[in-house]
Design a protein around this nucleic acid. Structure first.
Lengths: 215, 215
DNA sequence: TGTACATCAGTGAACGCGCGTTCACTGATGTAC
DNA sequence: TGTACATCAGTGAACGCGCGTTCACTGATGTAC
């Protein structure tokens, strides 16, 4: 019988405490929200004395910032993969992008909280800021490619379109699409609500969206 | 020289402690977020012993729920006043509605937090639930009137339109439009971002939005 | 109008609790020779 | 290959602190007669 790392009696050294603390934070945030998790809690969850986390993180905020950073990195790479530079077809790729955004918010509510609701300041940590910028850059690139389909006079700024899509998606995610606690009742799944909104919005931009129906 | 209620030495009785506690909560939430305010803090802010609040609220959560309830009530009446049943012109009224939403989020970040981010459960308190439903009912009524302008075949469900507008507005408000701490840089004011988004969305619905330009 | 009494609203002292943080320590691991 | 030593990572005890909550109390207010 083989033991997982958490099953057997561990020695004096934990071996991978830093990772364990991050996982603990995610677990606890998912359970009680970003405010309801404490440094001591995380240590307890990892099976370690309350002083041990100080070897790896300056304080609670540093741990939270690290969680947010990892979240943005995973988020950015999930979005980039979904968008895939608009291949094979821009509209279909755009649809994938939106679905992936919502799926991330639902699958990783703890990451999402840490990233957007915990009040982690983005400007203190360079890596954190870069990770968040990378995530937005994907949305921005997608918007860029979308507006390029629109004839030049009357073409809206790509940045604005990216911000619109982001706001719409974030709004749906935070009002309805959270996996941790369904906050409000909804007559349709959030994915459909988003898809419909984006179709209407794109039609308003003058983009023929029928190609997106192929999923 | 006349004294305001908080200036002079108060007697043994505070006189209006319940209101003072609510104001304290708003002040503290605006300062440190909905999680970073404590019952004891509120008592201190109101200049009263830590046991006094128990005469008026069962516990911290009850105070928070009361703040959320008041927030929804003010929100609902501000929205209703802005919408004014679509008078004199539907599109202009709709524009006012969106601006009023954002203005509320900016002017009353503490209320907005308590209402949408503090995790106050809506289903425990009847008055709270009703207040929140009243606020949404305004959006819903506005959407109803809007879609009635669209020719019947291909007319979208009003509820969906209401949810789209709400999500969009909430997304912009929570990402960019908060008065307490401008979370992210933006190339244009949030009001303009929202107005543009709504215009595009309405155009996508087949509504001629030029009438809205009259503000 | 005055007096007795009930009720209300806030006091202040006390408690147990868990958190954040520090400290000297010690077991485990890696490295130089 | 073995030994000495430096470094690393976690221990556990301790501290001060503020919070939530309770309790018997007391000053102020309202009301009945």
């Amino acid at each position: 019988m083989k033991w997982g790392r958490r099953a057997g009696p561990r020695g004096y050294h934990h071996g991978n405490l830093k990772e364990a603390l991050v996982r603990a934070a995610l677990e606890l945030i998912a359970e009680k929200g970003p405010a309801g998790f404490t440094f001591a809690d995380a240590a307890r969850w990892a099976g370690v004395s309350p002083a041990a986390p100080y070897r790896h993180f300056r304080d609670r905020d540093a741990l939270l910032a690290d969680v947010a950073r990892r979240g943005f990195q995973e988020f950015a790479s999930a979005l980039a993969k979904a968008w895939d530079e608009g291949k094979p077809e821009v509209m279909a790729a755009f649809d994938r992008l939106g679905k992936t955004y919502l799926a991330f918010a639902k699958r990783e509510p703890a990451y999402y909280s840490a990233m957007f609701e915990a009040g982690v300041p983005l400007d203190t940590d360079r890596e954190l800021r870069e990770a968040s910028e990378n995530a937005f850059a994907v949305l921005r690139a997608a918007a860029e490619k979308l507006v390029s389909l629109i004839p030049s006079p009357g073409r809206p700024p790509a940045l604005m379109v990216a911000l619109h899509i982001w706001s719409m998606t974030h709004g749906i995610a935070s009002l309805f699409g959270r996996g941790d606690a369904a906050r409000r009742a909804l007559p349709m799944p959030p994915e459909e609500l988003l898809e419909a909104a984006v179709l209407i919005y794109l039609r308003g931009l003058g983009l023929n969206a029928t190609a997106a129906r192929q999923r």
